[in-house]
Design a protein around this nucleic acid. Structure first.
Lengths: 109, 109
DNA sequence: TTTATTTATCGTAATATTGCAATATTAAAA
DNA sequence: TTTTAATATTGCAATATTACGATAAATAAA
């Protein structure tokens, strides 16, 4: 045991969970927020922004990329990362639909 | 090592990360979606809905509760869980602000 | 070519998560 | 009181995550 039983859930559930899991770490939230703040592609400056070693950040970037939250393109010997708007838009809709559905029923707990 | 370095991030970043982490598991997404579907408090029926053992579900519910995503009230010898709208609303705003800020700059990657 | 510079990967230790059987707890029902 | 039903807790094994030092790879600069 110890492995998540992904087989028993829908691919949608697994996908949303994977995307939120990728955001479920303060370092990765910080990376996303930094990318949002600089408002454009960034390259290697994340390492200077966060109190983590370069391999650790590289790993976090990889996870964000695997989950589809950021994308990167090679630029000389550096790599330019930026937020993948589509995924954010999808998550935004997910929570918006949820909040909307919750708006009606306050007869709970 | 192996422990997340929460000390180095803002409490806001840690909080958002903790909430998204709690949602970062298909079983917990399924629980939230079920709570949303039944549109009212539920009690013990989640165990019948999910392909997981009762202790496992109890654990997932505990995590969702700790992260502030659901709340529960005792009702006889059962417990009534339901979604905590405030937390969902906060997350919804978080993603909405992000999506809005992203809307302008398509000059990336 | 040699030397930075930047990012990725490997290996590994520490810690966290996932899942469940067994058991405990609590309150309703008989 | 005894039994049943619902939920929580404990203990444990399997696996995943986090973090970093060392090193590799690849390109730019000297």
């Amino acid at each position: 045991m110890g492995a998540t039983k992904t087989d028993f859930f829908t691919s949608q559930q697994n996908q949303v969970a994977a995307q939120l899991k990728a955001l479920g770490h303060p370092a990765r939230i910080a990376i996303i927020e930094y990318l949002l703040k600089v408002n454009t592609c960034i390259c290697g400056d994340i390492v200077n922004e966060l109190p983590l070693a370069q391999p650790t950040i590289s790993q976090h970037l990889k996870e964000l990329k695997n989950a589809g939250l950021i994308k990167g393109s090679i630029e000389g010997n550096t790599i330019c990362y930026c937020i993948d708007e589509k995924t954010i838009a999808r998550l935004q809709k997910y929570f918006a639909a949820m909040a909307k559905k919750l708006a009606g029923n306050n007869n709970c707990c």
